[in-house]
Design a protein around this nucleic acid. Structure first.
Lengths: 237, 237
DNA sequence: AAGTGGTCTAGACCACACT
DNA sequence: GTGTGGTCTAGACCACTTG
């Protein structure tokens, strides 16, 4: 099964209760001991579950006073992206489609090979234009090592590559390093997105790793700035 | 002292060893049990320390094989910003100075009051222009509730407000919610940063909370895009 | 089979908040 | 003082990787 972790079950249960309104905003949750009794586990396991919710900003735990609901699941219109969350997942209801510009297998440049930490290996090079409600919205360059992502086909590109990696290849993602900056539109942006030379782009560079530490994706996505918002939460350690 | 947490000590010790090159890139660290013996603590405490490093992307732990160094502390030229990390901290060696444009105490607009989750309270409103090596670089609007941040003075603004909050007020920061987007320069940008009407800005909106869950800062910072890079690491839960 | 991490427990003890 | 979270321990047991 793989997904029989007690703390994850408790986490999703409480998260769902908050989202369903069973626990309301600013309401106090039962204390750790009570929850531990309810879920038939130790207090530490409850804490581990609640810690995820703290990190997501949904609850606050105050030593001496208790645990309080502080917000609900962040599913605004904003386009966020994490390691699980490809574009597709987070965008929610809106219609997103992909047009494949290039899907080739090749030897990477030295720069790409360095990013992916590979040598003498082939990669997929994929270029896609994303459309949001039929309007061109972003252009994505994706590089993945052939040795890790086996059997990729065009049909996977139209949906989400991440689904294929998770569901078919059974690989588990672990983390993503992200760099965001602004840039002037280049020739490719102009021709593929049909925009002016003096337009402005938001560029997201992403390096993603699997649970075993190997890098499976390097991508550069350039968005029209008008629709782009990046949201994230930092939590102190 | 306040800082007598065992796991934090272990964390900083190992982090520093990695940064000093005592543990080299891709090198395998001692296993959990050995480290626990070395630091005279339980394995769980070692894990807690290493988990922070995992979250920061510095190490990878592979069940069955070990713990490996995967990178060093992210202190590139990039200007990152977290909850601890105000601009000042992360920018490192470069000379950063602030020019105070406005420092007033006023009733907030409804919008700002909502963001800070206050009612009928006064706030500080601060506008500063940041200079990087004497060049104007960003303009920052900061709003803080008077009830939380007491006794703020101009001299604190030239340095870092965060230092004042942490060292003098003894308040502990917990998290920051951040939104990043691109935008065209507005009149204020043009006049204060001395740039063209058709320039482009990177806007960072930040909402920061203390450990007790109260919101102590809402800020909007607009940067010249040329020098701005935002970096972060996502880790799966 | 041996090495290594991850999950989980049951309980001790401390720090902090409320009243 | 009582309630509540956070830290820490010592050890059990399981899952995964590697020789």
């Amino acid at each position: 099964m793989g997904e029989s972790l007690k703390y994850k079950g408790i986490y999703t249960d409480i998260r769902d209760k908050i989202n369903k309104g069973e626990y309301k905003l600013n309401e106090k949750l039962p204390d750790g001991e009570t929850l531990a009794a309810y879920y038939e586990c130790s207090k530490l396991t409850v804490k581990k579950a609640l810690d995820i919710l703290v990190q997501e900003g949904m609850i606050v735990r105050r030593r001496g006073s208790g645990t309080f609901v502080k917000g609900v699941s962040t599913n605004g219109e904003a386009i966020a992206l994490g390691p699980t969350a490809g574009l597709v997942k987070t965008i929610g209801k809106q219609k997103i489609t992909s047009k494949i510009i290039l899907f080739s297998i090749e030897k990477p440049s030295q720069e790409i090979a360095d990013k992916l930490e590979i040598e003498n290996e082939y990669i997929y090079k994929i270029i896609r234009v994303r459309h949001l409600n039929k309007e061109p919205y972003s252009i994505e360059h994706t590089f993945m090592p052939l040795s890790i992502i086996k059997g990729l086909e065009p049909k996977h590109l139209e949906d989400s590559i991440y689904n294929y990696i998770r569901d078919d290849l059974k690989l588990k993602m672990h983390s993503a390093h992200v760099r965001i900056k602004g840039d002037k539109a280049n020739d490719e942006d102009c021709s593929l997105l049909n925009i002016d030379k003096d337009s402005f782009m938001m560029e997201v560079e992403k390096l993603a790793t699997l649970e075993n530490g190997s890098i499976f994706e390097y991508s550069i996505t350039r968005h029209l700035y008008e629709n782009f918002v990046f949201e994230t939460v930092f939590v102190q350690n």
